[in-house]
């Protein structure tokens, strides 16, 4: 590549890289350094302690719950959101009457400000005043009011459900767009070969949008893992620690309890956990891709 070409590309990349470097990496570096210090609001002079704070974090009573909750939350929201998004996209791609209107409606949750969506859902789940209980009681699914968010066994599921509602339109949109680019001829050829709708979906459509699925899953994983508003408004991580995830814990420890050093450590650990999660997805897709190629 000619030298002026290299220079040209560096100049094109420079503004974006500079901003990311200064505004995200530099503060994050500070956070990483802080995570090796014992510091809090009431002890303003940080003291280097190596991995001591990490040991404290890993040994905390909450820690196993937070890791497990974060993984459950992220994986469940991502899978359900993508599944529902894909199904909605398939449904909206059939050219049925009323389709245009429905496509617009489906996108509404994504547009609603996150804090508002969370407040609406907290109210919907209210054991006495909420719409959900009152509908379920009316149709006879429930016999008595259920306190969805106050029960350790249902709180996480309720939070996941609300998050899927808020997030699935984004996935649906991307899948819808992807489906529109699948070649008609391919599908028709498969139909002539006698493939039913399920075969067509599995053999033609899904492989054609495989790339989109992978990207969608990675992107929604990152966004969901750091999705703070929903759980914070619904439960603040409770009851007990049943819905505590990394972002709510970081906020609570740092701003709720003035312990910035420990919050920084949780922040670093959270990136590691998320990176492992993303790497896992990428490895999984790469190995299926490899199998596909050899097959």
């Amino acid at each position: 590549m000619p030298r002026n070409d290299t220079l040209f590309h560096w100049l094109m990349l420079a503004p974006a890289l500079a901003i990311l470097g200064v505004m995200l990496y530099w503060p994050m570096l500070g956070t990483v350094i802080e995570s090796f210090h014992d510091s809090s609001f009431i002890r303003p002079q940080p003291r280097f302690v190596g991995f001591e704070v990490y040991e404290r974090v890993f040994g905390g009573r909450d820690f196993p719950h937070i890791v497990r909750n974060s993984v459950v939350w992220t994986v469940a929201v991502v899978l359900l959101q993508n599944l529902l998004g894909l199904l909605a996209a398939l449904l909206l791609n059939r050219g049925l009457p009323g389709q245009g209107m429905l496509r617009a409606i489906v996108l509404l949750p994504w547009v609603l400000p996150g804090v508002v969506a969370a407040i609406v859902w907290r109210f919907m789940y209210d054991p006495q005043l909420g719409l959900i209980n009152s509908l379920l009681l009316r149709v006879g699914v429930l016999e008595q009011t259920a306190a969805w968010l106050a029960d350790s066994s249902t709180a996480m599921a309720a939070a996941i459900f609300a998050a899927v509602w808020k997030g699935f339109p984004f996935s649906a949109l991307i899948y819808l767009a992807a489906l529109q680019s699948v070649e008609r001829e391919q599908i028709e050829a498969a139909t002539i070969d006698g493939a039913g709708p399920v075969r067509r979906l599995v053999d033609v459509t899904l492989p054609a949008i495989r790339g989109v699925i992978v990207v969608n899953i990675v992107l929604t994983t990152i966004l969901t893992f750091n999705y703070f508003d929903m759980i914070w408004v619904l439960t603040r991580g409770g009851p007990q620690s049943a819905t505590h995830i990394f972002p709510t814990k970081i906020y609570e420890v740092g701003f709720g309890q003035f312990r910035f050093g420990e919050a920084a450590t949780y922040g670093v650990v959270s990136i590691l956990v998320l990176a492992v999660l993303v790497a896992f997805y990428l490895l999984a897709t790469r190995s299926t891709a490899a199998r596909r190629r050899t097959a």
Partner: peptide
């Protein structure tokens, strides 16, 4: 991509 993963409350 990694920069997207930083938790805002920590930075």
């Amino acid at each position: 991509v990694l920069a997207q993963m930083f938790p805002h409350a920590a930075i």
